[in-house]
Nucleic acid binder design. Structure first.
Lengths: 225, 225
DNA sequence: CTTCCACGATAAGGATTCTCATGCGTACTC
DNA sequence: GAGTACGCATGAGAATCCTTATCGTGGAAG
């Protein structure tokens, strides 16, 4: 699988190249937008990773150039934390996914694999919803009935999992593996505690409870009444 | 690559099978020692993952049976946190690596890959040392001049990295990627803070400092005088 | 030699997350 | 129906880790 990286910061670029090479990808690295676009048009890649902020022409323009040429490989955008609008714009222009800097390499790898598996079709959704609860994946923000709710990172990860598999009863083992990178320790109740904290933030004070306990099975997020 | 798992707890066994299958390994799962040994002897595996506590014959006996038959594939042991002696025994019997339950799946995967890459030769060391500092990888314990030092997990990971590459100057970017799963955020000083905490525990109060700052480069652990 | 600046050290504070202890409710047994 | 065991809920406390702010120091430039 061939991947094109367009990234001007040498530290990041080299790290990505090295990390992806170790994961058995063939990687080309371009240091600016022009080089990147040129490579993208003359070579055949299965995926492109574009930084938004680039010297010369920026990531959007590279993306536009790629799409105009008719190339359809999936594109993953790298954006700075604050430039939310950039992210929206990138998705509108035809990016398939985005990643906010700073990010964990494992996160990048996971997304790269996902994009390659499904060939770039079916973009990442931007929102997850259930009843009046809304989770904004891009902005990493959560609201219920329009009211902003602040979630810590574990809380967010847990809610994201519950929402992605809304209606399914998720056993603890699954939750542990997804949110905690797996932990077979039975003598801990981190999950209960985390659920408790999450409930306090998204269910307490609301009539309609969204998180339900299924005794002996696990937890579901459901908007049934 | 074919992997044999011998694990009686269904939760763990299934999870391992699934996770390793997703990582493109061919996996067989045995629920007890006898089945496991039988499979190990009749089929050809590139690696075996053995739980110590098993119904019927235990993990050591399976290992002994494997070795007696002349099979040399690498063996990774899974042990409970408390049974330290078990771990030592396992290594003496010819295991190549061990993992303490509970563990992160990513950790397991990393070790599996390492073992497969080097074909099981060259066992994991049990200790890392520098001057009078000793890090016990199995017990996850650290002593200096024989005095026990309690380290938090990040501190331990950092010290382990420094010790594994003792004498090398490690740039921040490397440390960040290894200990923090990479983080390109420049406006944080987590590393300095972590180094500080680590120094407080292993260098403060000792004449011979082990952690040295190399201005503009990074940090080294060295026992030079 | 002095000044300035970048880099690192350090302290303090806060946020997050885990552990532990305990309470409650449900389901099962007798 | 009473007793009991188990699973989950909850609260309190602590450990760990990160952020921010400030200070110090070494090295380069003038």
């Amino acid at each position: 699988m061939r991947i094109l990286i367009v990234e001007d910061e040498p530290k990041i670029g080299n790290y990505l190249r090295q990390g992806l090479a170790e994961a058995c990808f063939v990687v080309d690295l371009a240091r600016d937008g022009l080089d990147g676009l040129h490579l993208a048009l003359t070579e055949a890649y299965d995926l492109a990773i574009l930084d938004v902020m680039l010297p010369g022409i920026d990531g959007w323009q590279v993306l536009q150039g790629i799409r105009r040429s008719g190339k359809e490989m999936p594109v993953l955008f790298l954006t700075a934390r604050d430039d939310v609008d950039d992210r929206v714009k990138g998705l509108e222009l035809g990016a398939d996914d985005y990643l906010v800097k700073p990010f964990a390499f494992s996160e990048l790898l996971a997304r790269v694999r996902t994009l390659l598996r499904r060939g770039g079709m079916a973009k990442e959704p931007e929102f997850l919803r259930a009843a009046d609860l809304e989770l904004d994946l891009m902005r990493r923000r959560v609201t219920r009935s329009g009211k902003k709710i602040n979630l810590a990172s574990k809380e967010f990860a847990l809610l994201e999992l519950l929402l992605r598999r809304r209606g399914e009863v998720l056993p603890r083992s699954l939750i542990a593996s997804q949110v905690w990178d797996m932990n077979f320790d039975s003598d801990t109740n981190v999950i209960e505690v985390a659920i408790r904290r999450l409930r306090a933030k998204i269910d307490d004070g609301f009539d309609q409870k969204l998180i339900h306990t299924v005794r002996g099975m696990g937890y579901v997020l459901e908007a049934t009444e």
